[in-house]
Design a protein around this nucleic acid. Structure first.
Length: 803
RNA sequence: GCCGAAGUGGCGGAAUUGGUAGACGCGCACGACUCAAAAUCGUGUUCUUUCGGGAGUGUGGGUUCGAUUCCCACCUUCGGUACCA
């Protein structure tokens, strides 16, 4: 889905910056619950300021009235508008690799080292364009209800957006004029707070650290800040943290509790400050136990538990004025109390964060923005779009670490103003490409009104779950925005979604010493300190690395050294999704060359249910090839002579055909293609057995088969004498009369185990079936003269005798 | 860790609403055809067995006349975890 080689299709591309401009020129009005032009927001500001505006904006947006707005400098006004725009620049933490001079994706970083080359990576703040997707958090969640998507996919998106109700509470810092605001969903446990924790990234740490603790705190932050969020979340068992030397006051009890810094608190969620209640939160409990901090039980039933977090809800104890209330009532009561006393307010929090839109790469759509001397971003006028990627001498970052576009010579708007140097991410294009497909030649708009109204939204989207929290969320956001602004007419882009499984690959890994350009063979890695890197599977045979090919692969490996075992370098392996970034891709070209496209197509369908993931493996493809040959043999003999005859089919032959028609029809409805392929095999085997070469049968079979093996079906169709394409032939109608049975072979079970089978007419009443079953020789033997306790007869299914 | 999914023969998998576990295919074994091989065709193929049977759908429990299917707990693998898209 990546739209990478962007400058190849300028017609397609130029629409994208227009989207960007629209987002820049819009804000989200929470009153009308949709995106509106920023111009109308400015009008309101001029008339009455922003005190009555309910809109999505930055947390630190000041309140002002009309006269204050008018008195502001243009720069100040622009700065305030940026706090409302749906795309805006902000500082975001990125993975910076000084050695490579580039920013890396999280999955390009392993244990703090770059996947490529194995160089150290640090986390660094950089100016990035953001998309205010959080404005849409509620609609993105609520709309899911009406979509025909799997519940698991809806769950994933709902959890990712992560709406939670709670409150913010202010804790005053002792002897300092600072209050720390924390977000909590459990204000009911406020009387159980025994310490407070800051994220290592928190801005006020330096100010809040006592001189005695400074060295320790600084050392801790240095270490913690370079760990990835994922690592910090994953390693809950390794507790770490450090005391700041400061104390804060619990506003409910006026009790002083120590203030700590710990990396289990993430800066990106809530306020980066957590009130710790070891008696009801697992992480807090582990932390408190580890550092010997007190644990105060506040929920009835936890008093005698060694681990009080086993019970998280109940009646409050030891909790001042909320003692005796249950958790739910206590939440309400504490929020009311906090609001009345001015140290807190109820708050809805989302886990979802605004999306980083900038990439420090060359191959992406340029952001249509230039900067004036005051640092303020300005949009390029529409008639000057598209902004094209400038030529550069190398597609690499500059020596000083600026993005590749900084290499462009004299690349300035009106020869004067510098352009934005980051480019757009893959999801900028993947969010709306289906709209463009509706009207690909339109050079006036992203997509014309007539085209959107004709094609509507996507009826059926087949995509993997790996897109759950990325592409499929961005795309919905983008489409919803276009809907709000009247460019499209469906709020949701994908009505029905089916998750196909992923074809996995078998990746090969090599092990580089952390400190040297030396690679250790797989069997010896326990003796060294290594990082795991990929080797391309195409230079590995039976997990043995072709060392020369590996050295030639990348310049940084050219003079690598190798520590071998038994004279060879053995690689590790891992089964995971097939992906360019994992260097485990294989092309199906050779398979198509050998077996043909129909065979490969059917084999892929035959592999298993569409929603299952599995490693790519071509062992079974011969079976499908044989099937196609058998099919061919129904039409032609060994000498290539047509066998087809015009005789009237027998009942048996119709039965075989119509069973297949019925099964495949059902299967297509359920996207169960693997069982259709089986059914075709059964059908062809049966027709071969019957020596059936009758046109009436073969013709209909071909039509049913044609979506599965289009080329061969078309060719045989022509062989039967048709001039028109098989694609135009009407689909055969299933006729139940051909497959009806008048008897059924009942499995006879004794105590739930199948012991024999008896055939009964379908008309026979259950009573007679029961009587005849009990007379049966095999049943008699198992009864051993005893009387059965119970006999269950399920028509057309089974007979079970309970002894 | 958290969120989501999946575990059935040597392998990919099948099994309408809870009703014959292993369809179909790969592989393997044996046989036919052949001077021989390939191709093709045929037979067999869950394990175990004292040949009566017994066990069996990741593990341990539960509900039921009957569980791959429903419930509870756990294990393993895969996807996502915010710059792969």
């Amino acid at each position: 889905m990546g739209q990478r080689s962007t400058n190849l299709r300028p017609g397609l591309l130029q629409m994208d910056p227009m989207d960007f401009s629209q987002l820049f020129n819009s804000f989200y009005n929470n009153d009308t619950n949709k995106a509106e032009p920023i111009a109308s927001l400015i009008e309101i500001f001029e008339k009455e300021g922003n005190s009555r505006v309910v809109a999505a904006c930055d947390e630190d947006t000041p309140t002002f009235d009309a006269s204050q707005w008018k008195a502001m400098s243009e720069l100040t006004q622009s700065t305030i508008l940026l706090k409302y725009r749906l795309t805006y620049p902000a500082d975001a933490l990125v993975n910076w690799c000084p050695e490579l001079g580039t920013v890396l994706a999280n999955d390009e970083v392993k244990d703090g080292f770059s996947e490529r080359g194995g160089y150290p990576v640090e986390r660094k703040k950089m100016r990035q364009w953001m998309m205010r997707i959080t404005a849409y958090a509620d609609r993105l969640t609520n709309n899911l209800e009406h979509l025909n998507w799997s519940e698991s996919m809806k769950d994933m998106q709902t959890n990712w957006i992560g709406k939670s109700f709670g409150c913010e509470l202010d804790f005053k810092v002792k002897d300092k004029n600072i209050a720390l605001t924390c977000f909590t969903t459990r204000p009911d446990t406020i009387f159980g707070v025994t310490y407070m924790v800051l994220a290592p990234e928190h801005e006020l740490i330096a100010e809040l650290t006592s001189p005695e603790q400074r060295a320790e705190v600084e050392a801790y932050i240095q270490k913690a800040i370079n760990r990835s969020e994922r690592e910090r979340m994953a390693e809950v068992k390794t507790v770490s943290g450090v005391f700041t030397g400061s104390y804060v006051t619990n506003p409910f009890t006026n009790e002083q509790v120590p203030l700590w810094v710990a990396d289990y608190v993430l800066a990106g969620y809530g306020t980066g400050v957590v009130m710790a209640v070891p008696s009801s939160d697992d992480r807090d409990f582990r932390f408190a136990t580890h550092f010997g901090l007190p644990v105060k039980r506040v929920i009835a039933g936890t008093e005698r538990l060694e681990n009080p977090t086993e019970i998280k809800h109940g009646n409050m104890i030891n909790s001042g004025f909320i003692t005796g209330l249950d958790s739910k009532e206590a939440v309400k009561a504490t929020i009311e109390h906090a609001e009345k006393n001015g140290f807190g307010k109820s708050k809805v929090n989302y886990r979802l964060r605004d999306a980083v839109f900038s990439r420090q790469r060359y191959w992406g759509e340029p952001v249509p923005v230039y900067f004036t001397a005051d640092g303020m971003p300005h949009l390029l006028p529409n008639d000057e779009l598209p902004l094209e990627l400038p030529p550069v001498d190398e597609y690499l970052p500059t020596a000083s670490g600026e993005p590749p576009l900084a290499r462009a010579k004299d690349w300035l708007y009106r020869h004067k103003y510098p352009y934005e140097l980051t480019t757009m991410p893959g999801w900028a294009g993947s969010s709306w490409y289906f709209l463009r497909y509706m009207d690909a030649q339109n050079d006036q708009a992203l997509v014309g009104e007539e085209a959107v109204k004709y094609w509507n939204s996507v009826d059926l989207y087949i995509g993997g779950t790996e897109h759950a929290t990325g592409h499929l969320l961005y795309s919905r956001f983008w489409n919803m925005f276009l809907f709000d602004r009247g460019f499209v007419f469906h709020e949701e882009p994908f009505q029905k979604l089916v998750n196909q499984g992923m074809i996995q690959g078998r990746s090969n890994t090599v092990y580089k010493l952390k400190t040297e350009n030396t690679f250790v063979s797989f069997g010896l890695i326990a003796q060294y300190d290594t990082i795991e890197l990929y080797a391309d599977v195409n230079m590995v045979y039976n997990d043995k690395l072709d060392i020369e090919a590996f050295k030639a692969w990348r310049s940084e490996y050219a003079d690598a050294k190798f520590i071998l075992e038994d004279g060879e370098y053995k690689c590790g392996f891992v089964v995971e999704k097939m992906s360019k970034s994992k260097y485990n891709t294989v092309t199906p070209d050779a398979m198509i060359e050998k077996y043909g496209a129909d065979c490969l197509r059917m084999y892929e369908m035959f592999l298993g249910p569409i929603e299952l993931s599995k490693p790519w493996n071509t062992h079974g493809i011969d079976g499908v090839a044989k099937f196609l040959r058998k099919l061919w043999a129904l039409f032609y003999d060994n000498e290539g002579k047509l066998l087809m005859v015009n005789e009237k089919p027998r009942a048996e032959e119709y039965k075989v055909l119509h069973k297949t028609i019925r099964k495949v029809e059902q299967d297509i409805e359920n996207l169960s293609f693997n069982t259709s392929v089986s059914e075709f095999m059964i059908c062809v085997n049966a027709l071969t057995q019957l020596k059936c070469h009758k046109k009436a049968i073969l013709e209909e079979l071909l039509v049913v088969l044609s979506p599965f093996a289009p080329h061969i079906a078309e060719e045989l169709w022509q062989a039967l004498g048709h001039e028109d394409s098989i694609a135009l032939a009407p689909y055969p109608e299933f006729n139940a009369a051909f497959v009806e049975e008048d008897e059924f072979e009942y499995p006879i079970m004794i105590n739930g185990k199948m012991r024999t089978k008896i055939t009964f007419s379908l008309e026979k009443p259950s009573g007679e079936i029961e009587a005849e079953t009990l007379e049966n020789e095999v049943v008699q033997k198992w009864l051993e003269g005893k009387k059965p306790k119970k006999v269950i007869v399920v028509p057309r299914k089974i007979v079970n005798v309970v002894v």
